[in-house]
Design a protein around this nucleic acid. Structure first.
Lengths: 247, 247
DNA sequence: TTTTCCGGTTGACATGGATCAAGCCGACGC
DNA sequence: GCGTCGGCTTGATCCATGTCAACCGGAAAA
């Protein structure tokens, strides 16, 4: 299991009580750049840690918003539904990333967040986060950066959906996953996909058959080895070249 | 000229000095929900008003970020460029909307902002906005809402690019423009497009010919009347129906 | 062990939109 | 007034991806 976050083995009171200050994701997640003392104040704010089983919703579109969620372990997707039944996966989120930022705008969630494997999240009451970030400049600034990063990420997806062809999209997707796994200390070259071909397709604006064919093509070309959801990347620069090739 | 923001005729010192407190966009823009006193503090923060001529850049991808911009009058597009020359319009912005939020994340702008007509913007130094929003809760909260709204908007575009067909995309685009013009007190049924068919196409992930054909089709069906960039919407529900029709 | 089912792969064919190409129209310079 | 040019429209053809369908294989249920 190359990409399962190793949970703390020694379950002690202190582990349960303190949230951020000894979380191994603190360099990726909201606490980034905070001092020890600031970190402890953030700890107080994390009201709940909650387990979400694979397939369960963390929240649904339309529900009132009052907290954002940090993923402590596991893997999620977010999707948006149209009345006519069409849906679009808007993102895949992994440990250290935040969920629920879309809800701030209307005070209701605007998408569904669904666990793709058994996961654990930290709920961060939003009004308390706002109060605390009025006091801790670093927290305020970092939170703004996280929101902005989400906007930039979305622009990347728009670029992908608007101008790239099928194989470029899948290559970009794999490279992005690889890079995010690397940032979490996992192999950049070998990982398990948590989502189905259909979910990948929905995210990339493609049908599952097209995704499947692109995987096969990449394998033929020797860029990757695919075995169901187990992916090994054999030729990173090959994938990268594929993306920039087309004029 | 149905959609030109009427500028204050009496150019007086006070008009030049005070920015937000007598701006007719204050209900749309950043000052939303602030008290008179808070508004005056926000005024102090607006360092510059600047005119941008049609075709000029407000900022370019890669430039250091230090301010966000509120559009006082005019019309902009933002776009992202890939190394291989492909580009994607990521949005069209009109009076009362904010530009530059993408730059917070890396402290560099990640897209280009270009005026599509002679425009006027208010520069809001970001670090000062952060300070002030530590003091004015309403400002902090509203700013968070604005960022979140941008994320939600981007999800809408992803939906559009990922699951809709050409005519649905254009219908969604026209209805969105119409709704935004309405919010600014203009006719919801009649407006001038500030962008070319090519720019619309780039935004919608289509080629300009496809956009043009879709316009013609809508006209044939009696949904709209098109005359170059002058659009009249004749049948709103027809356009709406077009969007939800397909399973 | 056998059956069922779900996710995935692969093939044959259909089609929406891209591409290529010609021509139109209004704005602008000469 | 005339030529040029950019933005737009329209037609003919092409092709990437969608659609439909068959089949496979592993996992869970029987």
């Amino acid at each position: 299991m190359p990409n399962t976050i190793p949970l703390n083995q020694e379950i002690s009171l202190s582990v349960i009580k303190t949230a951020c200050s000894n979380c191994n994701l603190r360099e990726l997640c909201l606490p980034f750049g905070l001092s020890l003392e600031e970190l402890e104040r953030l700890d107080d704010l994390i009201s709940t840690r909650r387990r979400i089983k694979r397939g369960d919703h963390l929240y649904r579109a339309g529900e009132p918003f009052d907290a954002i969620y940090a993923i402590r372990s596991g893997f999620f997707k977010t999707d948006v539904l149209l009345e006519d039944g069409r849906d679009q996966v808007t993102g895949f989120q992994m440990a250290g990333e935040l969920l629920g930022l879309d809800g701030i705008s209307t005070e209701h969630h605007t998408c569904n967040a669904i666990a793709l494997e058994d996961s654990e999240i930290c709920a961060i009451p939003f009004s308390r986060l706002e109060s605390l970030s009025r006091e801790i400049h670093n927290l305020q600034h970092h939170f703004h950066k996280v929101m902005s990063r989400e906007i930039v990420r979305d622009h990347g997806v728009m670029m992908l959906l608007g101008t790239m062809r099928a194989e470029e999209r899948l290559a970009a997707f794999l490279l992005n996953l690889s890079q995010r796994f690397t940032a979490r200390g996992f192999s950049h070259a070998e990982f398990y996909l948590r989502m189905t071909r259909e979910e990948i397709g929905s995210y990339l604006g493609l049908k599952l058959e097209t995704v499947s064919r692109a995987f096969s093509k990449f394998q033929e070309e020797g860029y990757i080895a695919v075995q169901q959801k187990h992916i090994r990347i054999l030729n990173v620069s090959g994938l990268k070249a594929l993306m920039n090739h087309r004029a």
